[in-house]
Amino acid sequence: MYETNYHRASSVSEAASLLAGSDEAKLLAGGQTLIPTMKQRLAAPSDVVDIRHIAELKGISVSGSKVTIGAATSHAEVAQSADIANVCPALCGLAAHIGDPHVRHMGTIGGSIANNDPAADYPAAMVALDATIHTNNRTISASDFFVGLFETALDEGEIVTAVSFDAPSKAAYQKFPNPASRYAMAGVFVAQGNGGIRVGVTGAGSEGVFRSSEMEEALASDFSPAALDAIAVDPAGMLADIHGSAVYRANLVKVMARRAVAAAG
């Protein structure tokens, strides 16, 4: 790891001014992606601004069907939240299968979505739940937030503070983890909410997370795994690498979607 200067922010405004004070600063939340990336010298921020201890970024609140999760809330906290489990257990299940227990104690929801790894789990849930991403400047709808591979709509120096969504009446997430890395090779989050049915797909798309409108249409008229039988996922938009071809991933997307619909019931 190259040299860096560590700063611990105690508020979002302090974090924002620390970020603004350096051209090469990066936010450090749980660090479960950033620290390994820095160790490999693929990232070399001159400064890291630790936001893990900022009280206003932490915590889960559920009021009726409205769920709000602070950006510095860990995967373990989401996985174990009885309040979220009451209204959207699918999200707890998703969080419980990110990385491993030790990673889940450190990794945060804000860090995961701001990094927008094409194989990360949370982005699929965010687009399927039609979530709102809150930052220190504005709110962004999840469909506008995830722009491409490791790219988001965040401006320079902008900090994710929370995510919120209305709990769906039904939802489920199913993923096919890579047998070695355990990252999703295809992960599908299906949700039936006020705005209809939404299907978020991660791990498979060559542009990162995406919604499958044809699956959404098919499920709107018949919410059953069989409704997806006639759909052929186009391999043209799929990732292809040593772990699986585009055709293989296209098939996995359909299989995971069928399983998610079955699990959502």
Binding site: G31, I35, P36, V48, D100, P101, H102, V103, H105, M106
Partner: peptide, 23 residues
């Protein structure tokens, strides 16, 4: 040393973490 094997697990404030993945 790449956050995968867990030989470095310690508890920080009561929770298991990978000490090779934390400054």
């Amino acid at each position: 040393d790449t956050s995968q094997c867990g030989a470095c697990v310690v508890h920080v404030d009561g929770q298991a973490v990978k000490s090779c993945t934390m400054l």
